[in-house]
Protein backbone atom coordinates (compact mmCIF):
# COMPACT_ATOMS: atom_id res chain seq x y z
CA UNK A 1 0.00 0.00 0.00
CA UNK A 2 1.33 3.34 -0.93
CA UNK A 3 0.65 6.45 1.08
CA UNK A 4 -0.74 9.25 -0.97
CA UNK A 5 -2.53 12.50 -0.54
CA UNK A 6 -6.23 12.52 -0.03
CA UNK A 7 -8.89 14.94 0.98
CA UNK A 8 -8.38 16.39 4.44
CA UNK A 9 -10.51 14.32 6.82
CA UNK A 10 -8.63 15.47 9.89
CA UNK A 11 -10.95 15.86 12.85
CA UNK A 12 -10.04 18.92 14.84
CA UNK A 13 -9.69 18.19 18.56
CA UNK A 14 -12.18 20.90 19.39
CA UNK A 15 -14.56 19.94 16.61
CA UNK A 16 -17.35 17.42 16.83
CA UNK A 17 -16.38 16.83 20.45
CA UNK A 18 -19.94 16.71 21.71
CA UNK A 19 -21.08 14.46 18.91
CA UNK A 20 -18.16 12.11 19.54
CA UNK A 21 -18.84 12.10 23.26
CA UNK A 22 -22.51 11.41 22.67
CA UNK A 23 -21.70 8.49 20.36
CA UNK A 24 -19.16 7.16 22.85
CA UNK A 25 -21.65 7.28 25.71
CA UNK A 26 -24.22 5.46 23.58
CA UNK A 27 -21.60 2.89 22.62
CA UNK A 28 -20.67 2.43 26.26
CA UNK A 29 -24.30 1.63 27.00
CA UNK A 30 -24.34 -1.11 24.39
CA UNK A 31 -25.08 0.67 21.12
CA UNK A 32 -22.78 -1.12 18.68
CA UNK A 33 -23.87 1.13 15.80
CA UNK A 34 -22.61 4.15 17.72
CA UNK A 35 -19.24 2.48 18.09
CA UNK A 36 -19.30 1.75 14.36
CA UNK A 37 -19.90 5.43 13.68
CA UNK A 38 -16.92 6.38 15.85
CA UNK A 39 -14.82 3.85 13.98
CA UNK A 40 -15.84 5.33 10.63
CA UNK A 41 -14.99 8.83 11.82
CA UNK A 42 -11.58 8.12 13.29
CA UNK A 43 -10.06 5.01 11.74
CA UNK A 44 -8.23 7.10 9.16
CA UNK A 45 -6.69 9.34 11.79
CA UNK A 46 -5.61 6.38 13.90
CA UNK A 47 -4.04 4.73 10.86
CA UNK A 48 -2.09 7.86 10.01
CA UNK A 49 -1.08 8.21 13.66
CA UNK A 50 0.47 4.74 13.78
CA UNK A 51 1.72 4.55 10.20
CA UNK A 52 4.89 6.58 10.67
CA UNK A 53 5.64 4.94 14.00
CA UNK A 54 6.13 1.40 12.74
CA UNK A 55 8.34 -0.05 10.05
CA UNK A 56 5.80 -1.53 7.66
CA UNK A 57 2.16 -1.39 6.57
CA UNK A 58 1.26 -4.74 8.12
CA UNK A 59 2.40 -3.54 11.54
CA UNK A 60 0.35 -0.37 11.08
CA UNK A 61 -2.78 -2.39 10.30
CA UNK A 62 -2.17 -4.67 13.28
CA UNK A 63 -1.90 -1.64 15.50
CA UNK A 64 -5.10 -0.07 14.16
CA UNK A 65 -6.89 -3.31 14.89
CA UNK A 66 -5.40 -3.42 18.39
CA UNK A 67 -6.35 0.19 19.09
CA UNK A 68 -10.00 -0.25 18.18
CA UNK A 69 -10.27 -3.55 20.03
CA UNK A 70 -8.90 -1.84 23.13
CA UNK A 71 -11.25 1.09 22.60
CA UNK A 72 -14.20 -1.29 22.32
CA UNK A 73 -13.36 -2.93 25.63
CA UNK A 74 -12.69 0.38 27.36
CA UNK A 75 -15.59 2.42 26.03
CA UNK A 76 -18.05 1.50 28.82
CA UNK A 77 -15.68 3.42 31.10
CA UNK A 78 -15.23 6.42 28.81
CA UNK A 79 -15.67 9.73 30.64
CA UNK A 80 -17.43 12.31 28.43
CA UNK A 81 -15.60 15.07 30.31
CA UNK A 82 -12.57 14.16 28.20
CA UNK A 83 -12.43 14.76 24.44
CA UNK A 84 -13.01 11.47 22.66
CA UNK A 85 -10.20 12.01 20.19
CA UNK A 86 -7.70 12.64 22.97
CA UNK A 87 -8.94 9.47 24.68
CA UNK A 88 -8.55 7.49 21.46
CA UNK A 89 -5.06 8.85 20.80
CA UNK A 90 -4.08 7.85 24.32
CA UNK A 91 -5.14 4.29 23.60
CA UNK A 92 -3.21 4.40 20.33
CA UNK A 93 -0.16 5.78 22.15
CA UNK A 94 -0.26 2.94 24.67
CA UNK A 95 -0.71 0.38 21.90
CA UNK A 96 2.33 1.73 20.06
CA UNK A 97 4.40 1.72 23.24
CA UNK A 98 3.31 -1.78 24.22
CA UNK A 99 4.15 -3.06 20.78
CA UNK A 100 7.54 -1.39 20.86
CA UNK A 101 8.27 -2.92 24.24
CA UNK A 102 7.38 -6.32 22.91
CA UNK A 103 9.49 -6.03 19.78
CA UNK A 104 12.17 -3.89 21.39
CA UNK A 105 12.74 -1.86 18.25
CA UNK A 106 12.43 1.52 19.88
CA UNK A 107 15.72 3.34 20.16
CA UNK A 108 16.16 5.97 22.83
CA UNK A 109 16.67 9.63 22.18
CA UNK A 110 20.15 9.31 23.64
CA UNK A 111 20.91 6.84 20.87
CA UNK A 112 19.54 9.27 18.33
CA UNK A 113 21.77 12.00 19.67
CA UNK A 114 24.71 9.64 19.53
CA UNK A 115 24.13 9.19 15.81
CA UNK A 116 27.08 10.53 13.79
CA UNK A 117 26.61 14.19 13.00
CA UNK A 118 24.08 14.83 15.73
CA UNK A 119 26.35 17.30 17.47
CA UNK A 120 26.81 19.26 14.27
CA UNK A 121 23.17 20.28 14.05
CA UNK A 122 22.86 24.02 13.85
CA UNK A 123 19.34 24.79 12.80
CA UNK A 124 16.55 22.23 12.53
CA UNK A 125 14.48 22.59 9.42
CA UNK A 126 10.95 21.26 9.21
CA UNK A 127 11.20 21.53 5.42
CA UNK A 128 13.51 18.56 5.59
CA UNK A 129 10.45 16.36 6.09
CA UNK A 130 8.79 17.63 2.96
CA UNK A 131 11.90 17.09 0.85
CA UNK A 132 12.75 13.61 2.09
CA UNK A 133 11.63 10.26 0.81
CA UNK A 134 8.70 9.00 2.86
CA UNK A 135 10.32 5.68 3.69
CA UNK A 136 13.44 7.48 4.84
CA UNK A 137 11.32 9.67 7.09
CA UNK A 138 9.42 6.67 8.33
CA UNK A 139 12.56 4.79 9.25
CA UNK A 140 14.03 7.87 10.92
CA UNK A 141 10.84 8.49 12.90
CA UNK A 142 11.00 5.02 14.40
CA UNK A 143 14.28 6.06 16.04
CA UNK A 144 12.69 8.92 17.98
CA UNK A 145 11.07 8.56 21.37
CA UNK A 146 7.37 7.70 21.32
CA UNK A 147 6.40 11.21 22.39
CA UNK A 148 8.58 12.82 19.75
CA UNK A 149 7.09 10.53 17.10
CA UNK A 150 3.63 11.39 18.26
CA UNK A 151 4.19 15.12 18.11
CA UNK A 152 5.86 15.01 14.70
CA UNK A 153 3.01 12.93 13.26
CA UNK A 154 0.29 15.08 14.77
CA UNK A 155 2.03 18.20 13.54
CA UNK A 156 3.22 17.27 10.08
CA UNK A 157 0.80 14.51 9.06
CA UNK A 158 -2.40 15.64 10.74
CA UNK A 159 -1.57 19.34 10.54
CA UNK A 160 -2.63 20.09 14.11
CA UNK A 161 -1.50 23.33 15.69
CA UNK A 162 0.81 23.30 18.68
CA UNK A 163 -2.11 24.32 20.88
CA UNK A 164 -4.20 21.41 19.62
CA UNK A 165 -1.35 18.95 20.08
CA UNK A 166 -0.84 20.20 23.63
CA UNK A 167 -4.45 19.40 24.41
CA UNK A 168 -4.20 16.00 22.76
CA UNK A 169 -1.04 14.85 24.54
CA UNK A 170 -1.75 16.61 27.83
CA UNK A 171 1.36 18.81 27.87
CA UNK A 172 1.95 22.53 27.92
CA UNK A 173 2.23 24.31 24.60
CA UNK A 174 5.83 25.37 25.33
CA UNK A 175 6.76 21.80 26.17
CA UNK A 176 5.30 20.60 22.89
CA UNK A 177 7.29 23.23 20.99
CA UNK A 178 10.47 22.13 22.73
CA UNK A 179 9.86 18.46 22.00
CA UNK A 180 9.07 19.27 18.37
CA UNK A 181 12.26 21.31 18.07
CA UNK A 182 14.41 18.54 19.46
CA UNK A 183 12.65 15.90 17.36
CA UNK A 184 13.36 17.87 14.20
CA UNK A 185 16.92 18.31 15.34
CA UNK A 186 17.28 14.55 15.78
CA UNK A 187 15.61 13.89 12.43
CA UNK A 188 18.00 16.22 10.73
CA UNK A 189 20.84 14.11 12.02
CA UNK A 190 19.13 10.91 10.97
CA UNK A 191 18.00 11.96 7.50
CA UNK A 192 20.77 12.70 5.05
CA UNK A 193 20.19 15.87 3.06
CA UNK A 194 19.88 15.74 -0.71
CA UNK A 195 22.94 17.87 -1.05
CA UNK A 196 24.92 15.35 0.93
CA UNK A 197 23.65 12.51 -1.22
CA UNK A 198 24.37 14.30 -4.50
Amino acid sequence: MTPNRQKDDTVRPGGATEEDASLAVRAGKGDAAAFGALYDRHVGAVYRYVYYRVRNDADAEDLVSDVFMRALRAIPRYEPRQAFLAWLYRIARNAVIDRARRSRVQISFEDALAHPGADQVVEPDAGLLALSDKETVRQALTRLTPLQQEIIVLRFVEGYSTEEIASLVGRREGTVRGIQFRALEALRSLIPSREALA
Binding site: R5, G36, D57, S65, L72, G127, F156, Y160, S161
Partner: peptide
Protein backbone atom coordinates in the same frame (compact mmCIF):
# COMPACT_ATOMS: atom_id res chain seq x y z
CA UNK B 1 -3.59 30.29 13.68
CA UNK B 2 -0.43 28.24 13.27
CA UNK B 3 -2.05 25.36 11.48
CA UNK B 4 0.13 24.35 8.60
CA UNK B 5 -0.33 22.18 5.52
CA UNK B 6 0.60 18.52 5.81
CA UNK B 7 4.34 18.22 5.21
CA UNK B 8 4.46 14.45 5.28
CA UNK B 9 2.46 12.31 2.91
CA UNK B 10 -0.78 11.13 4.42
CA UNK B 11 -1.11 7.36 4.19
CA UNK B 12 -4.49 5.96 3.24
CA UNK B 13 -5.84 2.86 4.91
CA UNK B 14 -6.61 -0.09 2.63
CA UNK B 15 -10.32 -0.17 1.98
CA UNK B 16 -10.47 -3.94 2.27
CA UNK B 17 -8.74 -3.89 5.64
CA UNK B 18 -10.97 -1.07 6.82
CA UNK B 19 -14.11 -2.99 5.89
CA UNK B 20 -12.90 -6.26 7.39
CA UNK B 21 -11.89 -4.63 10.65
CA UNK B 22 -15.24 -2.87 10.91
CA UNK B 23 -17.03 -6.14 10.42
CA UNK B 24 -14.88 -7.81 13.07
CA UNK B 25 -15.46 -4.97 15.51
CA UNK B 26 -19.20 -5.08 15.04
CA UNK B 27 -19.20 -8.81 15.73
CA UNK B 28 -17.07 -8.27 18.81
CA UNK B 29 -19.20 -5.32 19.94
Amino acid sequence: SDRRPHMLERPVIREKFRTQLRSRLMTEA
